[in-house]
């Protein structure tokens, strides 16, 4: 026993509590406030219960945006995670080449998001953009991201891959560099194939960094706003109106704060749930709970 009870120690966590309160809890509670009430002015509000939720959940526009969002995030993960792993495996381990590769990889990550959008908006234009001109001219394909939904999707997806695959690659690269040489030496003595080395040494040792990469890429892609807003503005039509763009339209476009707050909460819960699922699946995979 011999433990001293001293409740004053709670004061030591007070600074963190205050910071978290202002950065997360108070804004979140504000949103909850708006979601369950119709607030017209500081003294003028009505309790509406789950009315806003019923309204937004049955709204076709929201369901479509949510579906788009799920498809987009799935595509992002399916492309960026394998591509990042391949890039990391291909990056030189040491020497001047390693430094050069690291700088090259980090470049897209250093560019502000709206600038990324602007770059691609111009880059993909059929008239003055290099990529757009090349696809329409020398390649002879009919490509116009402002008019064709599929082209718009591809543009946004390629942009995201360009912007964020380096993050996955850098994380994987760090994971790969942490594997002691003895593992590769043992594998070569055991006569393991390149695939076996990847499957039984590299991939399991990258589990931790891949978990972080998947979570970060999922959360970021699921809340993507700036880049598609700059490039397509959610169009053509509603083709690239992702959940966050839909939400912004309602919140700051139409100023319907009640429904917007309800959407925000639903949005938040979806991300929380899916992240929780990803985390638990990836923690368990290949550790004995499942047969490999």
């Amino acid at each position: 026993m011999g433990k001293t009870e001293n409740n004053k120690a709670w004061f030591l966590v007070l600074p963190v509590f205050v910071i978290v309160a202002f950065s997360a809890i108070i804004p979140l509670i504000t949103v909850v406030n708006y979601a369950f009430q119709d607030i017209l002015g500081p003294q003028d509000r009505y309790w509406v219960g789950t009315e806003w939720f019923k309204e937004v959940l049955t709204d076709d526009a929201l369901q479509e945006a949510l579906l788009r969002q799920l498809v987009f995030s799935t595509a992002v993960l399916l492309v960026e995670i394998p591509l990042g792993i391949v890039l990391a495996l291909g990056m030189p381990a040491r020497g001047a080449g390693a430094s050069a590769a690291l700088v090259l990889m980090a470049l897209p990550l250093l560019i502000p998001w709206n600038v990324v959008g602007t770059i691609w908006q111009i880059f993909a234009r059929g008239d003055i953009g290099l990529a757009g001109w090349f696809i329409n001219g020398p390649l002879g394909l009919d490509y116009n991201y402002t008019a064709d939904s599929f082209d718009a999707w591809i543009t946004i997806l390629v942009m995201d891959v360009w912007h964020w695959t380096p993050l996955v690659a850098l994380l994987c690269y760090a994971g790969l560099r942490a594997i002691p040489d003895a593992y590769y030496q043992a594998a070569s003595i055991d006569g393991a194939s390149r695939w076996a080395v990847f499957r039984h040494i590299e991939l399991p040792k990258m589990r931790g960094v891949l978990l972080i990469a998947v979570l970060l890429r999922f959360m970021d892609s699921f809340t993507i706003y700036t880049e598609p807003f700059v490039v397509t503005g959610g169009g053509p039509g509603n083709a690239t109106t992702f959940l966050s763009i839909h939400l912004a339209k309602i919140a700051v476009g139409q100023f319907d704060l009640g429904p917007a707050a309800a959407i925000s909460i639903v949005y938040f819960l979806i991300i929380l749930t899916l992240s929780f699922v990803f985390y638990n699946v990836m923690i368990r995979v290949g550790t004995g709970s499942s047969k490999s």
Partner: peptide, 9 residues
């Protein structure tokens, strides 16, 4: 080797 190498999977 000096440090044990096993295939975790």
């Amino acid at each position: 080797f000096q440090f044990p190498v096993v295939y975790d999977t």
